[in-house]
Every structure is written in structure tokens, then in C-alpha cells.
């Protein structure tokens, strides 16, 4: 590694000396320049120019008048107008917000009342429905009972009619049988036939 740059103690010292020399050169030059500047009229406090002062005065005053009339005056007013507009908008927005909150409270209250009312209506409707249901059931029961009673009565009446018819038939049969019996002597086997014939007739009728 012959070509590698090695920073040894002696080379460091040389660099430090070179750096100091460089800055000493710069500082020395600057000092000399300052001295020369003092002598050559570079001092800004000693280089007064009346023409430049008058020119500056005129340019600045004219600039001020032009900008005041056409730029900064309107800008200042425009900014104030905008700020006032923003303040008004904020104020209106705050008022609208307060109104909205008040309305919200009102609507929430109304909503709550409506919910209560709806609940009441539902309860009433349910109660009314229950009542109607009970009435319909009672009516149906009553009608059913009435129909039943009517049917029972009809059954009873039919039974009575049947019994009366049976009795009449029985009496007629008995009368006819008795008449037949009275016309001939009855043997045991006749007795049995008569009885069986009467029973058949009864069963057929």
C-alpha cells in the first residue's frame, strides 16, 4: 500500500500549520483591506450623496402615495371587510347553532311525547282488542250455547215425537195383536211366533 495517504502525527501538524497560515492570510488581508477601505473612501458613513437622498425621498413618497391610493388602502379596507364578514358569519353560525340546539331539544321533547302517545295508543288498542276479543268470544259462546240448547230442545222434541209415535204404534200393534189373539187359541209355539212377529214389526217400524 505504497500509494495510500497515511495521516501521521507529522502530516497532521503540517495540515494544522497550513490551515492556520490560510486563516492568518485571510485575516491579514481583511485587516489590510479594511485599512485601505478607510483610506479609499469606502466608509459608508463618509460617502453621503445628496442626489441619492433626494431621489430616495421622491421615489419613496411617490411610491407611498400610489400604493396608499391603489394598493394598501384598498387592501386594508378589503381585509377589514373580509374580517367583518367572517365575524358576522361566525356570529350567525353561533346563533344558528343555538337555534338548532333549541329546536333539537324541542323536537326531542316532541318525539318523546309522541313515543309516549304511540305507546298509549298501542296499549289502548291492545286493551280494546282484548275487550273485543272477549266480547266476540262471549257472543260466540252464547250463540253456541243457544244453538246447543236449541238442538237439545229439537232432540228432546224429536225424542218425544218418536216416543209418542212408538207408543201409538205399540198400542196399535198391541191392539191388533190382542185382536188376533182373541180370534184364535194360542199354543206355546204360536205364542212364540206371535211374540217374534211383534218384535219384528216393532223393530221394522
Amino acid at each position: 500500500m505504497r500509494n495510500t495517504l497515511r495521516l501521521t502525527a507529522s502530516s497532521g501538524k503540517r495540515l494544522t500549520v497550513a490551515a492556520f497560515s490560510f486563516f492568518a492570510f485571510l485575516s491579514g488581508s481583511a485587516v489590510l483591506m479594511a485599512e485601505e477601505a478607510e483610506g479609499s473612501g469606502l466608509n459608508p458613513l463618509k460617502t453621503w450623496r445628496t442626489d441619492l437622498a433626494l431621489w430616495t425621498f421622491v421615489v419613496f413618497v411617490l411610491l407611498l402615495l400610489v400604493l396608499w391610493k391603489f394598493a394598501f388602502g384598498p387592501i386594508a379596507k378589503g381585509l377589514e371587510t373580509r374580517e367583518q364578514s367572517v365575524l358576522d358569519k361566525i356570529s350567525n353560525a353561533e346563533k344558528a347553532n343555538a337555534d338548532a340546539k333549541e329546536l333539537l331539544n324541542l323536537y326531542q321533547q316532541k318525539l318523546s311525547e309522541s313515543a309516549q302517545e304511540v305507546r298509549q295508543i298501542i296499549d289502548d288498542a291492545r286493551a280494546e282488542g282484548d275487550k273485543k276479543k272477549e266480547e266476540i268470544l262471549a257472543e260466540a259462546r252464547a250463540q253456541a250455547e243457544e244453538e246447543r240448547q236449541k238442538a237439545l230442545k229439537e232432540i228432546a222434541a224429536a225424542s218425544d215425537t218418536a216416543q209418542a209415535e212408538l207408543a201409538a204404534k205399540s198400542a196399535e200393534l198391541v191392539t191388533r195383536l190382542a185382536g188376533e189373539i182373541l180370534k184364535k187359541e194360542i199354543k206355546p209355539e204360536d205364542h212364540a211366533d206371535l211374540l217374534q212377529g211383534a218384535l219384528n214389526e216393532i223393530s221394522q217400524s
Binding site: A71, G73, P74, I75, L79
Partner: peptide, 14 residues
């Protein structure tokens, strides 16, 4: 003048 006069035209409406 060239910069602020146009700016004034833009701002003065608010």
C-alpha cells in the same frame, strides 16, 4: 406597484 395593485384588486371585494 406591479405586485400590490393587482393584489388590491383581488382583495378589495372582501
Amino acid at each position: 406597484i406591479a405586485v400590490f395593485v393587482p393584489l388590491a384588486c383581488k382583495i378589495k371585494s372582501g
